[in-house]
Design a protein around this nucleic acid. Structure first.
Lengths: 229, 229
DNA sequence: TCAAAAGTGTTCTATTTACACCCATGT
DNA sequence: ACATGGGTGTAAATAGAACACTTTTGA
């Protein structure tokens, strides 16, 4: 109790909507709150912004502390500032969304007190604060993003098949996509590098593995290229 | 000096990028700062968020106080939170952008101390704080917005000609557009209502005036309609 | 040999682009 | 009468949508 200001100040937090993809459903990583308010309720990972760290740093720090995730794709989403969104006092929250690859899912066991768990987007439990609203907006943003920027790869393993990529688009956008048209379109950008490897998983023809070429993408992006699905 | 907290807190501000269109250039409304830091420098209108008002309310209040503008199109842009963006102390700023119609330009004489003035986007003076960055991001956002949502009308008078609309698109996007293709496309949405009035301004054929149909647009939007130019 | 997913082309339709002249007016 | 911007249509090219069968594998 030693920091004094002339006017009352809102507390600042960050909240992160962490998206994952397990091959079937789009998933969201939630934590169970260990302390009030909303003790034992599910919530987005997040916490207070320290005065000596940037907002991005705060979001990454909270992700590590609460979920063990690091080096993920992270982007600022929106800032929520209605008066009563936190019952304790005025709290303004800068929301982020993160995209994590399946390999990192295992890391998601929390190092902090609270439990962390993946939920399919179709079965999200009631959330603390206004986190349901934040999640809703994050999902809309992800849908938009996916259709005009190649971020889908952030949700897939480094090596993936075209079918995996298509399933991801279908899960996020909630639509069915024509296989042949999808492949034609995606390959036309010339941003997927076919590997010498194949994926064998089951009693059927093995699938060609690809990886995304981020260098080529950066070059194209500077020329005003748009990745539109 | 009576509000104390356990941990130090950042100050919260809002900053507004106010866009206008005079028929030729895209313009931005700037104020000259009356007090330090950056005294006498040009800056975006904005100020501290009060603990009892939402972020949107703060942005609108500051707009009225510093520029006299009210009832404008206003949307949250991004939140800026690098450590040293304000030389005084840690300040996190929620940036907004506003679109104002020419009729409101006159109102823009400040009621507050500082001077307010429109600058063409091509001739912006050096700005205080990180406001040049904010402006840059706002312009990118406006360009994106304009191409997939009908917000251009927020920058035009209620009654406008197709040429005025085209000039606006050209000014914002910085491109030349084919007149016939532009008209065909814009009219195909069936969101512009031709009025019984014409605009006579000079030694040439008078131009048909239109108005935007927001009701019809809301109906279309709910059906997943996209306004793409 | 069977089930299961991978892979592949063509036709049709819709959209986008390129492009040039006459019209109505004020001076 | 002339200069100025307003207004209009068509053809060619491109992109998007619809659609069905063969291939390779593991069990």
């Amino acid at each position: 109790m030693k920091h004094t200001y002339q006017y009352p100040r809102a507390a600042l937090t960050v909240d992160c909507v962490v998206f994952g993809f397990d091959g079937g459903d789009l998933q969201v990583l939630l934590i169970r709150r260990a302390i009030p308010p909303f003790k034992d309720h599910w919530a987005l990972p997040g916490g207070f912004v320290r005065v000596e760290e940037t907002l991005d740093e705060a979001a990454r720090r909270e992700l590590v502390e609460e979920t063990g995730l690091k080096d993920v794709f992270l982007e600022q989403l929106y800032t929520f500032g209605t008066i009563d969104r936190d019952p304790r006092e005025r709290v303004v929250s800068i929301a982020y969304y993160a995209l994590v690859k399946p390999a990192d899912h295992t890391t998601a066991a929390s190092t902090d007190a609270a439990e962390a768990r993946w939920y399919p987007i179709t079965g999200i439990p009631p959330l603390a604060f206004d986190h349901a609203t934040i999640l809703d907006i994050a999902l809309k943003r992800l849908r938009g993003k996916l259709t005009y920027q190649p971020v889908g790869f952030e949700l897939l393993p480094a090596k993936f098949t075209l079918t995996q990529l298509q399933r991801l688009y279908e899960a996020v956008l909630g639509t069915e996509i024509d296989k042949r048209n999808f492949r034609k379109k995606v390959l036309s950008f010339d941003l997927l590098i076919p590997l010498k490897e194949q994926l064998r998983d089951g009693p059927h023809r093995p699938a060609q593995l690809f990886r995304f070429d981020p260098v080529k993408y950066e070059r194209l992006k500077k020329k005003g290229f748009l990745f539109e699905i």
